[in-house]
Design a protein around this nucleic acid. Structure first.
Lengths: 227, 227
DNA sequence: AGCTGTGAATATGTTCACAGCG
DNA sequence: CGCTGTGAACATATTCACAGCT
């Protein structure tokens, strides 16, 4: 239903999200049309990169003119799958889980946390707004009830692999993992690791190796980025 | 003081953090020595990759034997700059800021949040454990007082660029940015973007494009991992 | 004239494969 | 003999440069 999509790199996908954000701003500003150059400038990349990225999904620009802002925005939403609402299961009702539960950009993008699970009996039964925290043992039922495909894992590393496997078995196909341990799952599950300490270490590496010596440092930028 | 470091890719640096974590486990398990093959297996990469990554920083393996676990661990800590303690300034005392403040892996790695700032007068003056929330206007003084180089930005997108520029002016050289907008700063500042909605979008992209069609999907894996 | 879409050129990152040391 | 360290082969991603539409 979506596209004649060829295989596309992870960095391209991440840039698409950023284009989308820029396009939202541009729509608000009332720009009816936008060139690859402008898009690039607002994002800190190059015009060629923008065109190449978009060309993976078809040709929606007009030569001599640029891209129609609103249609491109819609197309990107479609490509990224954010033109719909996704029910999301959150496992882990600690500090990070709580912050994510409240995280406005998730809801804005259609990622609705419809259930919160934890293994701590002291937390089970408590309410966070509309949802009541449930025991992690009920994961299969919860996933089935909401027909969820996406989950967030925000628990300590010790349980992470086991819970991830339970998620896979329950039918989850995409996991955003905040536990500081890489998950080893089958290829049917897409795992995105968010490792905060690692990001900090990448920073300290850069600092350490930029004041020392003359030319050391990172070549690929950002991170969160990034392969 | 650290190394004959050549320019090293962001993905390599991120893998170093993961090696370090595996080595900690191995040290606990009492393994005195470890081969690139074992290290690779525990991390989901290849032996050649491990050797290539490490070779950027010298040759600390013994042929026929492998790497001495503990010395390698120490060396990696040194390379990554986590053999010392870093004072970190946190700007943004909201949900995410609070979660990061409590985030154990940060302290474990020597990233100490020594000051918390916010622009909300209702929050200023409150105490989080040892530290008292201060007005974001005092940023220059706070940075100077702690001689900080690293900061975390966890505020809404509207203020992010302005505060980031203030950080740069105050002498901050590494920023972990949670605001969903890419910061445009000079090359002297290393910015690592952590964009949570974007990570979710990368997930929904993968799901959308794996059930549809036959062969679409992401080629570069994970995220975090970068370009 | 302006700007897209894309093949070709380049740069960067990963894997292979093997010589050489312990 | 095993395993590292590394150049050479390969794969992937980015940039260049230009033909072609509007």
């Amino acid at each position: 239903m979506t596209s004649p999509t060829r295989r596309v790199s992870g960095s391209t996908v991440r840039r698409l999200s950023l284009y989308l954000r820029v396009l939202e701003t541009l729509t608000q500003e009332g720009a009816g049309t936008v060139s690859s150059g402008v898009l690039a400038e607002r994002m800190g990349t190059t015009a060629a990169q923008v065109r190449k990225d978009l060309s993976h999904f078809g040709s929606f620009g007009k030569r001599g003119l640029g891209y129609a802002t609103e249609p491109l925005r819609q197309r990107l939403e479609e490509i990224l799958g954010v033109d719909r609402s996704w029910p999301v299961i959150l496992v882990g009702a600690g500090r990070i889980g709580s912050a994510l539960f409240e995280h406005a950009p998730f809801r804005d993008r259609g990622f609705n946390i419809v259930a919160v699970l934890d293994r701590d009996a002291a937390k089970v039964g408590k309410r966070w707004g509309e949802v009541e925290i449930q025991d992690v043992k009920t994961l299969p039922q919860v996933v089935a009830r909401h027909d969820a495909r996406v989950a967030i894992l925000a628990i300590p590393r010790s349980d992470a692999q086991a819970v991830a496997e339970a998620m896979e078995a329950a039918g989850i196909r995409g996991i955003l993992n905040f536990a500081p341990v890489p998950l080893r799952l089958g290829p049917a599950v897409q795992v995105n690791e968010v490792n905060l300490a690692l990001e900090m270490e990448a920073l300290s590496f850069a600092l350490r190796n930029q004041k020392t010596g003359s030319d050391a440092g990172t070549s690929g930028e950002e991170r969160g980025s990034r392969p």
